[in-house]
Design a protein around this nucleic acid. Structure first.
Length: 255
DNA sequence: ATGGCCAATTTTATTGGA
């Protein structure tokens, strides 16, 4: 089973690229983030024509997440089920065959110390509570845009980013608290080296100018899932060419 | 040194992204 995550930065702006990518890569399950559209604006017809079912948790202008799958998508849950957080469409969870998937678009946080930064840390605490209810003897795959680097290997210029947003110690501790539920960083099981990134700033032309990026899109897996996982790769081809998202897809193969 | 671009909406500016 091939599972992919992709922050598309507007599903409508990215639709031609998304459809051709689905037809080329043929992933079984895809978690999308930053749809930037409401449910009724979602391009269901084009996605279904490409061979995918779709479950959507949309929002006007901002955020928005979806699950696509070639197989039936069951037990869909939108959000945490919590009024404090669910007015922002950031989480969708479901079951596809024997795998439980959670797709998320974490709060960005703007800058260390900002009001949104504190909200980000609270959001991660709530995520931890939400994931604590999962049966970790199942194949559980939590993926999406976490907006946090695990460590300095995930940063092209660690000194420049030291204690800045996406890289600060409290953010990393919030992510570590989620990992403590028994999740593994699946990409690192297969690739220990640096220079593996999933986001590159449009403004600096960081992708084109020598792979100046961050790794902020992750695959967290329960023990049974990570044992079944044979590789995790970043699809750099999807970041090349005209009108790319600022994020590349990340793809995990489960045997 | 700074900032650059991109997308949506409030559209010929503003907001947010990371």
């Amino acid at each position: 089973m091939l599972i992919a995550t992709w922050n598309v930065n507007s599903v409508r702006a990215r639709l031609p690229r998304l459809v051709s990518w689905l037809e080329e890569r043929r992933p079984d399950v895809v978690l999308l983030q930053e749809l930037k559209c409401t449910d009724d604006q979602f391009p269901y017809a084009e996605i279904e024509a490409a061979g995918y079912n779709a479950e959507v948790f949309g929002q006007k202008s901002y955020n928005g997440v979806a699950v696509l799958a070639r197989h039936p998508i069951e037990d869909v849950v939108r959000g945490f089920g919590d009024e404090r957080f669910d007015d922002e469409a950031r989480v969708i969870s479901a079951a596809v065959q024997d795998t439980l998937v959670v797709g998320l678009y974490a709060v960005n946080g703007q800058s260390v110390g900002a009001e949104r930064y504190d909200f980000k840390l609270s959001w991660f605490e709530r995520l931890r509570e939400f994931l604590a209810a999962y049966d970790m003897t199942e194949k559980v795959v939590v993926t999406g845009d976490f907006n946090i680097t695990f460590d300095d290997r995930d940063i092209y210029d660690p000194e420049k980013w030291r204690e800045r947003i996406l890289c600060s110690t409290p953010e990393r501790e919030a992510l570590a608290a989620v990992m403590d539920l028994g999740f593994h960083d699946a990409l690192r099981r297969h690739h220990e080296e640096g220079d593996i990134y999933t986001w590159w700033d449009y403004r600096t032309r960081g992708f084109e100018r020598g792979n100046r990026g961050l790794r902020i899109d992750h695959f967290l897996m329960s023990e049974p899932a990570v044992e079944a996982c044979t590789d995790v790769t970043v699809d750099l081809d999807a970041r090349r060419g005209p009108k790319p998202s600022d994020h590349a897809p990340v793809m995990a193969t489960l045997g």
